[in-house]
Amino acid sequence: MSRIALQLLFRRTLLAIPILLCVSALVFGILRLLPADPIAMSLPPGATAADFEKLRQSFGLDRSIPEQYVIWLGRLVTGDLGTSIYFRRDVGDLIAKALPATLELVLLGLVLGVAIGIVGGLAMFSWRGRMGEQVLDLGTTGLMAIPEFLWAILLILAFGVALPILPFIGRLSPELVLPPPVTGFLLFDSLVTGHLRVLGSALWHMVLPAFALAIGVAPLVMRVLRSSLLDVIQEDYVTQARLRGIPEHTILVRHALKNAALPTISLIGVQGGFMFGGTVLVEMIFAYPGLGNLMVDAVRNHDLPVIQAVGLVYCVLVLGINAIVDVVYLAANPKLRVA
């Protein structure tokens, strides 16, 4: 990686710190508005007032809100995310289990969505001015009117119920056991430990949820790619390549696509953030054990320590993907390399 890219990454990391501080204070503040008492909800029916008070103290809920925030932040810095009120487990452990599952899903969904988007964008571009473009254009408008969670339900209906060919519950077939964890990433772990049946089953289970996420990204990639190809194709170097007798499809793939990729890359940065949001309901609908599922469970049970930690993790992911996309953008754009 070039020096400029590293500098950029460093600057973005530095900028992320104040944003994350504000985000954490905001999340903490909003959650303290809560009208219901999370402790009362988690106690068994026969609990006494003394039990209640003891539990409140053990979660630090008897202190003032700014005090609670400072304590929470202090522990956060040392890597202690607190204890879940509902699951009665370490929040850090819960997240460490769920995060890799979400990252795998998002990565697969993003790759799938961008691949479909590039093919569709090229098709739209090649058919410019013809019926095919109009149809695809209207198609993208239609696709964009359906959010990911409805795609998830429609896909289950189509390929799980009507035509039962794909699994739509969980991450693995029930008869399979998890391979010994190496990194926590199931796909990677099952591959390196040679559990190929687990790998196959996990991928098979990810087809529908990843596809639901991909349909959310693909139409936008299609549109942006088409319009930047339309800009690029008018450049002098394309005319020059044509004069040299280079076939049209070679020009498209070798020259135009490379230059038209830049707006698409920055779009992925924006969409990557939205995609993490999209996983929340998609994971819940597919009972896929990721961060989104954890978040929904926590929200339903007013599990404040989990909600605030998972909320923060999502923000780190969004800022992270934005930083990565910036660096890729820099690496892909020679005009920015000389600073």
Partner: peptide, 21 residues
């Protein structure tokens, strides 16, 4: 705006609805 953009909108909505009821 920067702080707001760090949230996936769904996450912020869930957090707000937990806080406000």
């Amino acid at each position: 705006v920067d702080v707001w953009m760090a949230f996936p909108p769904v996450i912020l909505a869930l957090i707000l609805l937990v806080g406000m009821g």
